[in-house]
Computed example of a mutant assay.
Amino acid sequence: MIRIVRWTALLAAATLALTACGSDRGGGSDGTIRIAISSDSLATQLVRMAADLGKFSDEGLDVELTTSNGGAQAVTAMLSGNVQFAAAGAPEVITTNAKGRKVKALARLYSGLSGSVVLSKETAEKLGVRTDTPLEERVKAPDKPIEERLKDLDGLSVAFASATSSLKAPVISSAESVGAKVDPVYMKQENMPAAMTAGAIDALQASPPVSELAVLQAGGVMWIEGPTGQFPADHTPVSSSTLITTQEEIDKDPDTVRKIAAAITKTAQLVADDPDAAKANVRKRFADVDQKIFDAAWEANKGSFVQPRVTAEQFAHDITVLPAELATPDVRALDPKDLIVPDEFNPKDPAPKS
């Protein structure tokens, strides 16, 4: 029940506005560096901490954060020149390069997978799953082999945030590995529970608190939990959020790119060295959450903010877990080393505390 209460409170805070910082310094045409972020979820907090805690301004940068309707929109804003950086999933880096647009992964903002699959009440009942059990049971995935749960997804319409969402690949490719075929539907995560209630989708794959909302308010049943590692490792990407920039931006303003990386490095180091300060900053954006509930949520997520360095090995793995529809010949021909920034721009993972 602690978990239920925790996410119930987080749901109440999910719509809190997140603010940007800024004055007149930086490398943009008007002195402002703009970063488009895919969502307001925990997966983006490393960038938000860097802004709030002065790590960007320490580098002489004036940064403005804007929230987009998913990673695809954030990358589109970057490619159109409206922003210099975007926070989105690794698949956005891979597929954009495969289409001939040179973008580079600059930092890993959140390591691990946050998304979970939730079945609608009607779908669960068709599969013989009880939906009249207590909430504490419905917010936990069933004690059933993962292969069987994946096979049960065959033919279901499953909502994802976008065609290239980092949360989509583990569902599609894992299902394909057991001979199941999922029918993807795309919509904003915040709209998924309502679509489930209306019977428009059979299931969804979303991050907290949306996944819990689908259980608590839409009557769904938790089916596969991403945060606890229930998806097969060989079908799971290594990160849920990546900071991206274009090769053009690197060539045009390498000093700013270098400073952004430095700010991310310092923020990750702060999380490692002074987690209480980092926690206090994130707490401001979830001010309505009960303290004990927030404490539990922070403990479960803080370790995902301290591995910002990007590597070719990460992308080599993430290419292998793409669903068949995205694993085109152009994708398979990519060299993972070409998907990340040169070492001079690459953030460093925090050094061990002395």
Rank of each mutant, 00 (worst) to 15 (best):
P254F: 11
L243H: 06
Q230L: 05
E249C: 00
V210Y: 15
E249W: 12
L204K: 03
A198E: 05
L243M: 03
P208C: 07
E248D: 15
D234M: 09
L216H: 14
A203I: 04
I224G: 01
A214D: 08
Q205V: 10
V221M: 09
I224P: 05
T228S: 15
E248N: 13
V238A: 04
E248Q: 15
W223N: 05
G199D: 02
T197I: 04
T245N: 00
R258K: 15
L213F: 11
T256W: 09
I250V: 14
K252P: 06
V215D: 00
D251A: 11
P237T: 05
P209H: 10
E249V: 10
S207W: 07
L213N: 14
D234E: 12
V257T: 10
I244Q: 05
E212C: 06
A198F: 07
R258V: 14
G229V: 08
I224L: 04
V210F: 15
V221H: 13
E249Q: 13
P208Y: 14
P254W: 13
D255C: 13
I201T: 01
E248P: 05
T256A: 13
A203G: 03
L216G: 00
T245Y: 08
D234Y: 11
I250F: 11
A200M: 07
E248S: 12
E248Y: 14
V215H: 08
T228E: 11
K252Q: 15
S239P: 04
G199S: 01
S211A: 13
V221Q: 11
E248G: 09
P232T: 11
S207E: 12
D202I: 04
E249K: 13
S207I: 08
S240I: 03
H235C: 04
E225K: 06
D251H: 13
P232L: 15
D255I: 14
G220I: 00
A214V: 10
A233H: 08
A214Q: 11
G199V: 02
D251V: 06
G220N: 03
S207M: 10
A214L: 14
I201S: 01
A203H: 07
G199H: 03
A218D: 07
K252F: 09
T236P: 02
P208K: 05
G220W: 08
S241G: 01
G220Y: 06
